[in-house]
Design a protein around this nucleic acid. Structure first.
Lengths: 155, 155
DNA sequence: TGCAATTAATCAGCACACTGAGTAGTTCCC
DNA sequence: GGGAACTACTCAGTGTGCTGATTAATTGCA
């Protein structure tokens, strides 16, 4: 008797939005390469030679997840992992030719998919969509652990 | 040299948004019960006696995922699973008292969390946020497999 | 009646995603 | 130079989320 309307819950909507995107990605972009994998390839096109941790930072994946994604890409020969001679803890990552080719091919398709995904919105609404979603995400990320100057808030 | 700006990719933003939500949920709502688990509890508060498949439909989870979520909730004694005497394929699901109590408790907390999550937006922007996100998700879901009357579109 | 199609649930397999604990390098500072 | 603190990565464990194949029960039709 006290059930809630989940369509007024932004978190629920976020999950549904991501599901919808996953589906469209599979249909229009690739069944082999996932969206997070593409994000990693893209980060390495922008900055070849990054280490795992930094790649994760760039695309928003934690240490464990980024490790798995990278091991898959590496297994498929899309990137190379080399110990940093300067710092033996790090692995330096670099796309192979095949990896760069894959990134180029998918870039075209993702652009097409993004157009379809956002088609229900007008140009102004699309701008607004980005603005609103970005502001909400960034604010929530900012609540992480900012040395918590005001921990008494949650009372 | 042909890297893309992921912050203009709605799918990437959707993932980040969900991550941000996950984080806030863990902090402000519960470390035991996840957001999808709450969605299932909520569906059963609204309609006690649903079967697995229908619950999945209500909250947007596929058959496999809903089975796992339900088995966890059942293991923790939050819901009961009984064979439908009318149709031996189905399991009818019903919250236990403990499940109903948990749902009540979390309802208060999710409301509080939603306020914090959306705090960066004004009231009008919040309305707009829901509207835009919902329209995009629903349009993409509609692209699923609608007997595909115009399959030539993706040329 | 009796078999074919449908349907609810399960299972195996893969991928993302987070936490906490452990390992192996590096840095810093005495 | 040597130990403490820090840092990159790995590993184990849990949970969400999807697909394709299988199993079991029901339905529907010849």
């Amino acid at each position: 008797m006290a059930a809630v309307d989940l369509s007024t819950h932004p978190g629920h909507l976020a999950r549904r939005l991501q599901q919808a995107h996953y589906l469209l990605w599979n249909t229009m972009v690739s069944e082999e390469i996932t969206s997070p994998q593409f994000a990693v390839l893209n980060a390495l096109v922008a900055e070849p030679g990054l280490d795992q941790r930094t790649v994760g930072e760039r695309v928003g994946l934690d240490r464990s997840t980024v490790a798995e994604v990278i091991s898959r890409l590496s297994r498929r020969g899309l990137l190379d992992k080399v110990r940093d001679p300067q710092d033996g803890r790090r692995f330096l990552l670099r796309l192979t030719d095949e990896g760069a080719r894959t990134h180029r091919r998918l870039t075209v398709r993702t652009a097409r998919m993004n157009r379809v995904f956002l088609a229900p919105l007008s140009a102004e609404e699309q701008t607004l969509f980005f603005d609103l979603v970005r502001r909400v995400s960034e604010a929530a990320e900012g609540l992480r652990d900012p040395a918590a100057p005001l921990t008494g808030v949650e009372a």
